[in-house]
Every structure is written in C-alpha cells, then in structure tokens.
Simulated assay, not measured.
Amino acid sequence: MNKSESKYFNTAERMDRAFLDLLDEKEFPYISVKEICARAGVSRSTFYLHYESVSDLVTECAEYLYEQLEARFEHRTSDVEECLRECPLEEVLLIIPEYLIPYLNFIREHSRLFRIATENADTLRLNQLYQRMYEHVLTPAFDRTRVPVRERGYIAAFYIHGLMAIVNEWLRGGCAEPVEEIATIMQQRIPPVVAR
C-alpha cells in the first residue's frame, strides 16, 4: 500500500470511529455529516470522497464489525468441521454454542449499530453479511447430512432469517435478556439438519 492509499484508509477509519462515537451519544437519525466531519477532523468534501451518504458509512462500519467477528471465529472453523463429521447425524446442528455465545455477545457490545443495520437491512446489504458469517457452518452440516445442493439455498435462507428474526427482536428490546437465554431460545427453536 502506498502513502496516498494509506492516508485514504486512515481518513476513512477516522470517520468510522467518529460515527461510532457519535452513535454512543445520540440516535442515528440525528447524526449529521457535519458532526461526523467535525469529530473526524475532515472536510465535507473528504466525507463525500469516501461515501455518498451516512448510510454508506453505516454499511462500512457494519462490514468492518463483521470482519472483526469473522476473524474471531477463523481458528474455530476446523474444530466445528471435525465436530460435524464425528457427531451422530441427529445431533448435526447449524446452531453451535461455541459460535452462538460469542456472536451474541458481540452483537450486544455493538447493539446500537446492529439495531440501525437491521432496521436498514435491505439498503445495507446486511443479508449478505449474515450469510457469509454462517457459510463455514452451513456447508459442512449440509455435506454431512447429504442435503441436496438444489435445496441448500432454501434451507440456509430459512435458518438465517429465523435466527435473525430472534436477534432483531432482541435488539428491539434493547438486548435486555441475557445472551445465554437468547442462545437457548435459538437452539430450541432451530431444528437439527437431519438426513432423509
């Protein structure tokens, strides 16, 4: 990365941090480009060089947080794949506590941004982000249970949207219930992937 690219990304990171700091102080609809620029120490023209709108900045912040979350799980992927290969077929789950608890804790830590992101899921392409996050669990489970390839997209959509409905409801309630309670609800309501 050359010096100008580094400066570009450093400026974007400052605006991301400024937005997240402002989000701790006030509701999303009341955060202006002017405030973000003042907090980040950049001009409005610099903001618009990076983003078309505050929604674009929210998208980038959400993607950045998901990348952090995915990085936390990378070392666990082989453990999950091994577990899915060795456990009895009736125990093949897409909801694994080793992933679920840290995921829910992460959402709670960043609940204001996630609430904004889920309320604007279509414009923020949030479904793509959620789908990416579950890919490393879905595929091994589908392979083990021999789910036909043509059915996998439908089943994945069912699981992901069901889980996200629970998360969205939890976010709307201010993440009042303990993480463990939400994890239990998810595990009890999402059936195992059983081979036919």
Score class of each variant (00 low, 15 high):
Asn10Leu: 06
Asn10Lys: 15
Thr11Gly: 12
Ala12Gly: 15
Ala12Pro: 10
Glu13Val: 04
Arg14Ser: 14
Arg14Cys: 08
Met15Cys: 04
Met15Arg: 02
Met15Val: 01
Asp16Glu: 14
Asp16Gly: 06
Ala18Asp: 11
Ala18Ser: 14
Phe19Gly: 01
Phe19His: 04
Leu20Asp: 13
Leu20Gly: 06
Leu20Met: 13
Leu20Val: 12
Leu20Arg: 12
Asp21Tyr: 12
Leu22Thr: 01
Leu22Asp: 09
Leu22Val: 00
Leu23Tyr: 08
Asp24Phe: 03
Asp24Leu: 08
Asp24Asn: 08
Asp24Ser: 12
Asp24Ala: 13
Glu25Cys: 03
Glu25Ala: 08
Glu25Asn: 04
Lys26Ile: 09
Glu27Ala: 15
Pro29Thr: 14
Tyr30Trp: 11
Tyr30His: 13
Tyr30Gln: 14
Ile31Cys: 13
Ile31Met: 12
Ile31Asp: 02
Ser32Trp: 08
Ser32Asn: 07
Val33Gly: 08
Val33Tyr: 07
Lys34Cys: 07
Lys34Val: 07
Glu35Asn: 07
Glu35Gly: 09
Glu35Ala: 13
Glu35His: 11
Ile36Trp: 04
Ile36Pro: 01
Cys37Gln: 02
Cys37Trp: 04
Cys37Gly: 04
Ala38Thr: 03
Ala38His: 05
Ala38Gly: 01
Arg39Gln: 11
Ala40Asn: 10
Gly41Thr: 00
Gly41Met: 04
Val42Pro: 03
Val42Trp: 03
Val42Phe: 09
Ser43Tyr: 09
Ser43Phe: 07
Arg44Trp: 11
Arg44Thr: 11
Arg44Gly: 09
Ser45Leu: 10
Ser45Asn: 15
Thr46Ala: 15
Thr46Ser: 15
Thr46Lys: 14
Tyr48Phe: 06
Leu49Lys: 07
Leu49Ala: 05
His50Asn: 02
His50Gly: 00
Tyr51Met: 01
Tyr51Gln: 00
Glu52Ile: 04
Glu52Ser: 12
Glu52Pro: 05
Ser53Thr: 13
Ser53Ala: 15
Val54Ile: 13
Val54Phe: 05
Ser55Val: 04
Ser55Thr: 10
Asp56Met: 05
Asp56Pro: 03
Val58Ala: 08
Thr59Lys: 15
Thr59Met: 14
Glu60Trp: 10
Glu60Val: 06
Glu60Pro: 03
Cys61Glu: 01
Cys61Val: 06
Ala62Pro: 00
Ala62Ser: 02
